[in-house]
Design a protein around this nucleic acid. Structure first.
Length: 437
RNA sequence: GGGCUCGUAGUGAAGUUGGCCCAUCACGCCUCCCUGUCACGGAGGAGAUCGCCGGUUCGAAUCCGGUCGGGCCCGCCA
């Protein structure tokens, strides 16, 4: 029977067997301490027998071990217990030393990220590094729970598509049995179609963009938390999204608050329902503060996103803020967005900014078939095109008022922890320069 | 796509107004000492043709040209 590091304290006095990786060795002469890493953490083992210490000669960190020993209650040991009089069995001997540290903080300087990714499989054995992805898994777990509690059906839609028709981003093209296929730039069409079936749907799957971007916030493959809900008003949608982010933050800090201290991560200050600021308001405030005229800008500049988040934190008491009142007459308007009933030159759209970056677009969709077809035509698209045919079916045969969002999982993880680059929050990042490991 | 910037042992850094440098420091590694470490401590040691190619020079990690590979910002985009 294998005992895990987390179960050690409860097994005081017993003889147990632990299995894991040699994580650290400290030889003090007659005393040698080693740490064994397993999926729950570390076990400290005190070795006094010289023959047992000799078994490790020539073996490096990463060696897979089985250790039988007696659990001793010991205040001086991490976790309050350790193994004594151990008998070591080498399961996998490792003679090559790891290329990067696994027991010291790794450099996350932008110049060194390449090294981090080059040795990703080893570097992540570092307990501090693991935290990033434990947090990310918790983000997914908690938002999934929140969505399921709210009657959402989880689904998976195809990522291999016949053609790019959504517009906007560049897409990847690949050979598909002689035809040209594209990789999905979003689940947009499918999640809307499924509103007509399940009312509330979500998925957390990869999204592909072929944009030649080289920034700290873009990748060519990333996970989108795609959520779509029917019979919802714009206000209800924004409130629901606020609730989801709040829930994620609470659960992440409940589970990993201690580990996050090592990253100097501060728990986000949030209001239950995030504040809203209009695009015009942001341009004006930023313009005044920087003595520039932003009124002609349709979108937010990266610097505005950073600035307005600091403003919202100080003035509105929230590190998350919705930017509303987007134009419906410039390129930021997509044909599937809904124009505002009160003012048709604006769209019922909002971007969710968090800690200086856009983490989600949260718009209402045009659900009237005739209006949607007209907006397609206005955008220079052909509603009769095969790429739109199946999408439009859903509307023709009845789709209620609906809206949703696409939230970037890695960006959310990055900002929760306070990392500087979205790639640090990605297990194996894909960007314009990197396709491996 | 545009601008800027970086490349020195396995890792992270110093040196970059040419010569004190066949290259310095820390971590890691090897040998030895050390009975409570937990970023253990101490002594010693190995490990780098300074990304690559060419040029200038008596002399190049350092200057110049080219080239390869990163990074940051902007644009695109989410």
């Amino acid at each position: 029977m294998r005992t895990l590091s987390s179960e050690l304290k409860a097994a005081v006095g017993k003889e147990v067997t632990v299995k894991g990786w040699l994580h650290k060795k400290r030889a003090l002469g007659g005393l040698t301490f080693i740490n064994i890493r397993d999926r729950k953490g570390l076990v400290q083992i005190l070795i006094e027998n010289k023959d047992e210490v000799e078994k490790l000669r020539g073996l490096q960190i990463g060696t897979v071990l089985e250790v039988k020993g007696t659990v001793i209650d010991e205040d001086r040991a991490p976790g309050g217990a350790e193994l004594h009089e151990p008998e070591l069995t080498i399961l996998v001997s490792v003679k090559d030393e790891p290329p990067i540290e696994i027991d010291k903080p790794l450099s996350h300087k932008s110049d060194n990220l390449d090294t981090l990714f080059e040795y990703r499989a080893i570097g992540l054995r570092n307990l501090q590094e693991q935290t990033v992805f434990k947090v990310q898994a918790k983000v997914l777990e908690s938002l999934r729970a929140y969505l399921i509690e709210n009657d959402f059906t989880e689904m998976n839609t195809p990522k291999l598509l016949a053609e790019a028709t959504e517009g906007g981003a560049e897409v990847f093209k690949l050979d598909y049995f002689g035809k040209t296929a594209t990789l999905a730039q979003s689940a947009q069409f499918y999640k809307q179609m499924m509103v007509g079936v399940f009312e509330r749907v979500f998925e957390t799957n990869p999204t592909y963009r072929a944009e030649p971007s080289a920034t700290t916030r873009h990748m060519s493959e990333y996970i989108t938390i795609d959520v779509e809900m029917g019979f919802v008003t714009f206000e209800e949608l924004l409130a629901f999204t606020s609730g989801l982010v709040n829930r994620v933050v609470e659960q992440v800090w409940d589970s990993y608050g201690d580990d996050l201290k090592k990253w100097n991560a501060q728990k986000p200050v949030l209001t239950p329902d995030f504040p809203r600021m209009s695009m015009a308001e942001v341009h004006e405030l930023y313009g005044k503060a920087h003595n520039v005229d932003m009124s002609d800008e349709g979108d937010l500049t990266p610097d505005e996103e950073k600035w307005i988040c600091q403003y919202a934190k100080k003035q509105l008491g929230s590190e998350a803020v919705f930017i509303t009142d987007w134009s419906s007459t410039d390129k930021t308007f997509k044909f599937y967005h809904r124009k505002s009933a009160k003012n048709p030159t604006l769209a019922d759209r909002s971007d969710l900014l968090f800690r200086g970056i856009e983490i989600a677009t949260v718009p209402m969709r045009e659900n009237n078939y005739d209006v949607l077809v007209q907006q397609m035509k206005d955008a220079g698209l052909d509603p009769a095109h095969e790429g739109f045919k199946y999408y439009l079916q859903a509307f023709k045969y009845g789709l209620p008022e609906h809206g949703g969002f696409g939230m970037g999982l890695e960006r959310l993880t990055e900002k929760l922890i306070g990392l500087d680059n979205v790639k640090e929050a990605t297990l194996f990042p894909r960007d314009i320069n990197r396709l491996t490991p």
